[in-house]
């Protein structure tokens, strides 16, 4: 039922805040839709117990905003939207991740010690 993640769990956990922010770049989404977007991108289908603490943390930090939308006969949905602060953070943190990747690539090519 749960799609396995493309990367090891500790990596997914480390990148989760950023992945959630990235999933909201194209517009507002509710929790379950965010989980599906993450699954589509190889993060595995996250359960609510892992996703909502992240959303709560991002909301407290002002990176996302949430608002209820009434469902048709359903219990309604709480939709999340990226804030300006969240966009800044996403850009900044993505830069750091790229830098980390580049550093690892450089290191893996090896350096010759005389």
């Amino acid at each position: 039922m749960t799609d396995p993640a493309r990367w090891p769990t500790p990596w997914v956990r480390a990148a989760l805040d950023l992945a959630v922010l990235a999933s909201l770049v194209e517009g507002r989404l509710h929790g379950y839709a965010i989980a599906q977007a993450l699954a589509e991108h190889g993060f595995g289908l996250l359960k609510g117990g892992s996703l909502y603490p992240v959303l709560n943390r991002l909301e407290e930090a002002g990176d996302v905003e949430a608002a209820w939308t009434e469902g048709q006969g359903g219990p309604g949905r709480r939709e999340y939207e990226l804030t300006a602060t969240g966009r800044d953070r996403l850009e900044r943190d993505l830069g750091s991740w790229r830098e980390l990747g580049e550093t690892l690539t450089t290191m893996s090519r090896g350096t010759t010690h005389g």
Binding site: H30, G31, Y32, A35, K47, G48, G49, Y52, G71, G74, P75, G76, R77, R78
Partner: peptide, 23 residues
């Protein structure tokens, strides 16, 4: 109430129980 409502909404969409979805 808000947290519970959101948890119920999520569990309804996933088709799982709250215990299965949230531990």
């Amino acid at each position: 109430r808000e947290i519970v409502r959101e948890a119920r909404s999520h569990a309804a969409e996933s088709g799982r129980t709250l215990a299965e979805e949230f531990g």
